[in-house]
Amino acid sequence: MSINIFKINEELKEFIPQEVIDLEEKATWGNPKRGVMDLPYAKELLEEHSLCAGCPESMAFRYILASLPNPEDTIIVNSTGCTSLVFPHIALHTVHSLFGNQNAVATGIKRTLEWRFPDKVKDVVVLAGDGATVDIGLDCTLQSFFRQEKITTICFDNEVYANTGGQESGTTVQGHVFKMAPKGKQWPKVPMWQLAIDSGCHYVVRMSVSSPKKVEQVVKKAIYVAREVGPTYLHLYTPCILEIGLNSDDALMEMRDKDKERFKFFEYVSPQAEEVIAKKKEEGLL
């Protein structure tokens, strides 16, 4: 049982910091029905981190980690960017490798774990920013879809390279002035969700993270479909309030605005994914 790696030996417990004891005792393990409604009470799998005050990316992290149906056997792969500052603080096995190779690393991990643990479900989830997913890592992202890797890819789209100081990215909207696009971006936002569908993903969603319960639903669907069918892709709007010049309490307002336009909820479900989702609903897991 992988959950044993969080159990503390009684003889040493009195020396262990409370936050680690809480992970064993108050986090939700072994319960696929866990979800965002645990957040007000349970110990989260995310510890204190260094993202900016009011950053919606941290909200996304909270919802996703609270929604993993099988955290005790989930591996998360990330890439370079703001997100990579959060990963040391996630109470799971996670990987930061290089900028843009996250889906390749995840492929290797997933295939090896299937070979090493044929009787166990080990979910592999990629969490990376838009630069990593759409620009520098597009090759690895799409190729993992072509190969039908059974992994869930989640892109945090803040429409900018935030960690390096606000440069234009492939997902920046046309005309927007950022560093490296001093005359405004010359070409349209890359429709990554559409590329994901065309490249063979079985479950694809575009949305903002303005609704925690909705995020929980799509994360669970994406993971269950990836487990049984093939690649799934979530494209989440997590605006960089710093780079677009908003205040620290403006993130939710910004996301709710964009819910009405370019991040209007969009969901694609392949016929095979439909079956999995129907089955999981019957089992009461969705």
Partner: peptide, 19 residues
């Protein structure tokens, strides 16, 4: 794999996962 960059990254994943 998709390229040598991808291949070496995939192998890193395999190796990290215990292969």
């Amino acid at each position: 794999g998709e390229s040598e960059f991808g291949v070496m990254s995939e192998l890193a994943g395999c190796s990290m996962a215990g292969a």
